[in-house]
Design a protein around this nucleic acid. Structure first.
Lengths: 246, 246
DNA sequence: CAAAAAAGAGAGCAGCGCTCTTGCTATGGA
DNA sequence: TCCATAGCAAGAGCGCTGCTCTCTTTTTTG
């Protein structure tokens, strides 16, 4: 017992490392709570420490600065959103009548919207104004890409993009779209790749307008409007409308 | 001379009121300068006062709180953006070959984008995360609506929306669209009204993604991509593509 | 000309992010 | 088993912030 414990700190990780992890999580949880209450601007290291019964300077052993704490929350938020979207798609895909590509697309869009409305301040953190100077640390990239990759996957699975009326791609963008396609979806037509990137940004325009109150005296039935707009986005990326034949 | 001056403070407005206005403007200008440098989070009343050679408490005679200063900057930003968009449209409309509706639409979209890229922190103020608690003062509404109204005007002027393939409007949204249309564009088909609201939000999704760096390792030639996406938006609101016949 | 309104100056309060120093304790090799 | 060491909490403190209060000066007004 003693031999395996002393030389391998990876498996069980002495009580100290374990405590460190637990405290790190507790700090983030408390910070997230305060974030939900008052927004990122009011998030205070001292208040978090106070609530956790520790002194403010002790907190710097876990996060070297306030912005680092925020960065950690940003990464968690991206992951939380990505997971919510992926789970919504998985749940929907598992139901009895397999969903059409448009239905899958709208399901994912609605999951993004629901997550944003449930966590408005965390949404603001990741899709609102960048908080510190301008530094978007590269570590957030994979987490940030999850929703985009999920939408691409849906379109690729559909592969039934049989020449719907897509906006023709200007020559200036063919190279651009080709480069993007090489990265993420080399099997899709360039028109679809470009439309996907645009739809990706436009989706967050819709969500952001609702979360940030821009629809306040304009749109009342926002759920219905969002479903309509998300369906429109699905069409712009080449997913076919439901067959009118019944 | 004396009679007209004493009883009518409206015309010339004693030297005091004039000074007050000038100082108010100077405060906002300096605040805007600091905003452009360091962003809204770092904007400090004390620093503004210091730069203006006054003591911090004196500044509270002009703006009762930091958030009130920010609110003033927000209104100015909305107006600045609205004016930039309107001027771009007016300039384009005045050129020799009168522009097509799509060209006008894209011109306005590009003006919005250009303004946002030139004033990223001010853009973040109005279309990023709301700054204070959540209060969007009603005073900002008219200024905020200018770009939207401009886009509506272009579509109305076109009135050539002869049944392009618009996403059909679900029944649940007919009442909604009818209400919006009654407010702003009672002469447009409901499908176009709904598509306009969606396109309005989606436009700012595109702009926001670029300004906030979400396109960073994704889209390189962002001007070309934006023009492409804005053209797509024009189509979704029923503006006809340029006739392929040459 | 005197009363009143408006503006500036200064001190001060509580809170913030962050640093540095000082003790304490659990950990891992001798 | 013992002990040097590394990790951690605590406290004091610096300079900054938003904001309030009081006091004095300046300008407008009846």
């Amino acid at each position: 017992m003693s031999t395996s414990r002393s030389t391998r700190p990876s498996a069980v990780q002495g009580a100290r490392a374990r405590a460190r992890q637990e405290i790190t999580v507790a700090i983030k949880d408390e910070a997230r709570r305060q974030l939900a209450d008052d927004g990122a601007a009011k998030l205070s290291l001292r208040a978090v420490a106070r609530e956790l019964g520790m002194v403010s300077s002790a907190l710097y052993r876990y996060f070297p600065s306030r912005d680092d704490l925020l960065t950690a929350l940003i990464i968690d938020a991206y992951d939380s959103l990505g997971e919510a979207a992926e789970r919504a798609d998985a749940d929907r895909t598992a139901t009895a009548p397999p969903p059409s590509p448009v239905e899958r697309w709208v399901t994912v869009c609605e999951a993004v919207r629901a997550w944003a409305l449930a966590h408005p301040h965390e949404y603001a953190l990741i899709y609102g104004s960048p908080v510190p100077g301008y530094t978007a640390p590269t570590t957030t990239v994979p987490a940030a890409a999850r929703v985009g990759l999920l939408l691409i996957g849906i379109v690729r699975d559909a592969h039934g993009t049989r020449g719907l009326a897509l906006t023709p791609l200007p020559d200036a963008l063919r190279a651009e779209a080709g480069r993007i396609a090489a990265d993420i979806a080399s099997d899709l037509p360039l028109e679809v790749v470009a439309a996907l990137v645009a739809a990706w940004a436009q989706l967050f325009g819709l969500v952001g307008f609702e979360v940030f109150g821009q629809f306040n005296r304009v749109v009342e039935d926002r759920a219905a409007f969002f479903a309509y707009a998300a369906t429109g986005l699905a069409h712009t990326v080449g997913l076919l409308p439901a067959p009118p034949a019944k």
